[in-house]
Amino acid sequence: MFLDGISALGDDDLADALTAAICGDRAGFAALWRWLQPPLLRYLRVVAGDAAEDVASETWLQVARDIGRFAGQPTAFRVWLFRIARHRAIDEHRRARRRRDGPRAPEAVGGTETTARDVALDALERADTQWALRLIASLAPDQAEAVMLRVVAGLDVAQTAAILGKRPGAVRIATMRGLRRLAAHPEVANRRSPAGRRAWASTGMAEAPEAEGV
């Protein structure tokens, strides 16, 4: 039913690539990028919107510059990568806010960032992944980040807490609340399998759960 997750990558394989990349080896960087760029890009699409690709590029450049100072294991490297990405995304938010506040900023006239992101995502609306990212991006920021880091980046509670600068308990609660909101979202609650649609059509049942205060 479900496809293999993108986060199911072996950290043992990452170790060799990491060592090679520290020495400037092209194959090492290629392996790191191929394995971690997709989850990084999805995380950034949720937290940085249209700027995701630019922020991802900045993130990787900083990684290339500072990877010599990194002395941790592959798992720690994933935490380090997403922490850098989060900081770059925060910087991008500040720049975007300054552009909007500026007297000649054309974006200030056109509309909000959310609208721009929605337009961009609408182009690929039919893709289930884009649909999922759009719904997760509609959550409160702390819930969206917690869900993305745990589901897409494949990090555990402690690693996610380290990136977000929160206590593990707060991360678990944010994740739970995010999942509750997603489950209650009409596009999720009314999603039916072919068999479910047939049953629903034959009985006329509409058992979509109501959205709860979470």
Binding site: M1, L3, S7, R42, D128, T129, A132, L135, V151, V188
Partner: peptide, 9 residues
């Protein structure tokens, strides 16, 4: 479905 789509290859 949503979570599987988010972590899809």
């Amino acid at each position: 479905l949503l979570l599987a789509a988010a972590r899809a290859p």
